[in-house]
């Protein structure tokens, strides 16, 4: 396996700093802002964005966590591995009604996770608007979905794997592009 680093810790920090500024600018009224991380790595990213925004406004936006597993389009017997994805916590400390929810995830790929996240959120209430922030957009969309805030757009081949590692969940920090090397 060949691993090429796309972002290091400083690169991630800079990308999040810029995204925080863009989110504030676009949302306008920061009191309505609700950052909701998609399990699992979206959650620490949402927390970091909240702290960065608090640094600018003095008021930390609410952070929630969303598990989209039961809304996926690939649960059920057609999964190859015979295993249902594990369920994670959903924790939305305040209601989403009337809020500008900014979904946060680590990688935007096919768009299927975002579709599931939109459906999940709608079952919790009626947000004023939903935006999407991702650390890495790797292309290859299968659904008509686009991110509002992108940390880094990384052109990839479908055979490549984008690995986001965060110190909160993985003990290391960075984004890598990994590819299986030809056997031999």
């Amino acid at each position: 396996m060949k691993r090429v680093q796309v972002l290091d810790a400083r690169g991630i920090a800079r990308a999040l700093e810029r995204m925080a500024a863009e989110i504030l600018e676009k949302v306008g009224d920061e009191k309505l802002l609700y950052l909701v991380g998609v399990q699992t790595r979206g959650v620490p990213l949402a927390r970091r964005l909240a702290r960065l925004i608090a640094g600018k406004t003095g008021c930390e936006p609410t952070v929630g966590a969303l598990d989209i597993t039961l809304y996926r389009d690939d649960v059920g017997p057609w999964r190859a591995a015979h295993q249902q994805p594990l369920l994670r916590d959903t924790a939305l400390p305040v209601k989403v009604d009337g809020k500008t929810v900014c979904l946060v995830d680590d990688v935007l790929y096919t768009g299927r996770t975002v579709r599931a996240a939109l459906d999940t959120l709608m079952d919790y209430g009626r947000p004023r608007a939903i935006r999407l922030a991702v650390l890495v957009d790797r292309g290859h969309r299968e659904l008509p979905i686009a991110a509002d805030f992108v940390g880094r757009a990384v052109p990839t081949a479908a055979s490549e794997d984008v690995q986001v590692r965060l110190k909160e969940s993985d003990g290391e920090e960075g984004v890598w592009l990994a590819r299986e090397e030809a056997a031999g």
Binding site: L86, D89, D123
Partner: peptide, 24 residues
């Protein structure tokens, strides 16, 4: 038991339904 514990949250939602077994 771990899965059941996560399922408990669904009963507290405004819409107490998820689409996981749609069509089953």
């Amino acid at each position: 038991l771990d899965t059941a514990e996560q399922m408990q949250e669904i009963a507290k939602r405004p819409i107490k339904k998820v689409p996981a077994l749609r069509g089953k």
